[in-house]
């Protein structure tokens, strides 16, 4: 994993607690993100997986500085993004972008496709000699064409709208894109089109992705590295192939075995690690290892001490007491 270069994005012990408001004072905190560390190298994709509410979107927003962290750092090109000001901040805002899950709500229904895609150019006061030609070129890059220029979002299908949202982002020539469940609202046949488009753009433009999804098939297809989240923490992180072939953490194993495989021979015969219950509330997370109430391998230490996030094999990290004594 460690190339000689420095990572484009690096997150150090990042935390985000949301206050839970009582009538007079704060009753407690949702520990949405609670001490997260990872790195993403230029041109690579980090896949962030985990179940609903584990903190994926919050991580995505933090690394784009769309939210203020409770503590911790997020570095972009070596600089702490939460300390950027003025021109540097503006540059960062151009270089780092987000694509959301819902292509229906992320576009303004009253704006033509041309205006939608050209809007960021106006906001950042970028000089473009021929706006129409500029937008048409972007449309071609995402598989649309000039016939779509002066139409409105409602005239497009979900997949086409997601293409438009991507074109809008590409207008700013970004380097880093957070893709938050970009295909979960789409059908499988259209999902494949969008995933292939994203891969293609990545190769051509040397883009770096943080790819958030709960669909493991999609994440495996897209990612070079995988981070598995549970209740606000990353419990396993490593090269995608290694994490998929040799998952270490009991939660990763349970999550992987819970996904039905689109092949009856494989899915019916494989061995599964079944875990009981559901993820508990991030307001009062369990003591020690947060997975311990559901973990079939729990030991005596697990509810007392929080396991460290250790590099168990080269580049493959895990947060579990089963591995900490190697």
């Amino acid at each position: 994993m460690k190339c000689m270069s420095t990572p484009l994005v690096k997150v150090v012990d990042l935390k985000k607690y949301f206050p839970v408001k009582g009538i007079f004072f704060t009753k407690g905190y949702v520990k949405a993100v609670d001490g997260v560390n990872f790195e993403i190298y230029k041109g690579k994709t980090l896949g962030l997986v985990g179940e609903s509410g584990c903190g994926k979107t919050t991580v995505g927003k933090l690394v784009l500085r769309l939210l203020k962290p409770t503590s911790g750092k997020a570095l972009f090109e070596g600089k702490d993004i939460f300390k950027l000001r003025g021109k540097e901040l503006k540059e960062f805002r151009k270089k780092a972008q987000m694509v959301f899950q819902d292509p229906y709500s992320s576009l303004n229904p009253r704006m033509t496709i041309f205006d939608t895609i050209y809007e960021p150019i106006k906001i950042y006061k970028i000089k473009v000699s021929d706006p129409e030609k500029f937008v048409v070129e972007l449309l071609y890059r995402v598989g649309l064409n000039e016939s779509h220029l002066y139409r409105y979002p409602h005239e497009f299908s979900g997949g086409q709208r997601q293409r438009i949202a991507i074109a809008r982002i590409l207008a700013l020539n970004p380097e880093f894109i957070v893709l938050d469940e970009p295909t979960s609202a789409l059908d499988v046949s259209v999902q494949a089109q969008i995933l292939n488009l994203l891969k293609d753009l990545q190769k051509k433009m040397d883009l770096t992705y943080l790819f958030i999804s709960h669909d493991l098939g999609v994440v495996r297809y897209m990612s070079d590295y995988i981070a598995v989240m549970y209740l606000g923490q990353i419990v396993e992180y490593g090269p995608a192939e290694e994490v998929f072939e040799k998952p270490l953490h009991p939660y990763t194993k349970a999550l992987f075995s819970a996904i039905p495989i689109p092949d009856p021979e494989i899915t019916r015969k494989r061995e599964k690690l079944r875990v009981p219950g559901e993820p508990p509330s991030p307001i009062n997370p369990p003591s020690g290892c947060r997975f311990h109430p559901r973990c079939p391998f729990r030991q005596e230490i697990c509810n007392r001490e929080e396991p460290e996030f250790i590099e168990y094999e080269k580049g493959h990290y895990v947060k579990c007491h089963l591995y900490s004594r190697k």
Binding site: V190, A192, Q193, N196, D215, G217, R220, Y221, I261
Partner: peptide, 13 residues
């Protein structure tokens, strides 16, 4: 996309 297979290119419709 199949999570237990490494796929180089998905086919889309």
């Amino acid at each position: 996309p199949n999570p237990v297979k490494k796929i180089d290119k998905l086919e889309s419709i």
